[in-house]
Design a protein around this nucleic acid. Sequence first.
DNA 1: CACTTGACGAGCT
DNA 2: TAGCTCGCCAAGT
Length: 103
Amino acid sequence: MPDFYERVYEIVALIPRGRVTTYGAIASALGAARSSRLVGIAMNHSHLTHPHLPAHRVVNRSGLLTGKHHFTSVPMQELLESEGILVIDDCVVDFSEVFWQPQ
DNA sequence: CACTTGACGAGCT
DNA sequence: TAGCTCGCCAAGT
């Protein structure tokens, strides 16, 4: 069984283009439903260990771009909109429509 | 080594 | 409806 972090990165890497998922959904998929914060911490470090990861496709449960301040080079909103995901006021539009449940 | 701080979220008041 | 508490645990101070 791989490290928790590795499994988080594994799932994030599976998120289809133009779709998003949540920290809690990832935690649940790993069997650690109450450890959603750990997913956030994992993502916080992902830019160092796994720079290629589509971290912009991970938002909080209400579709809010809580991690946007960690995207210094290219704005998170710009990355999402380039994939066809509308973002208004730091919030994903039609969040339930583009939500992707980790499998 | 002890304490604080989070890319979170569910449940309670 | 909105705010508060707690679980979770890696990292930083």
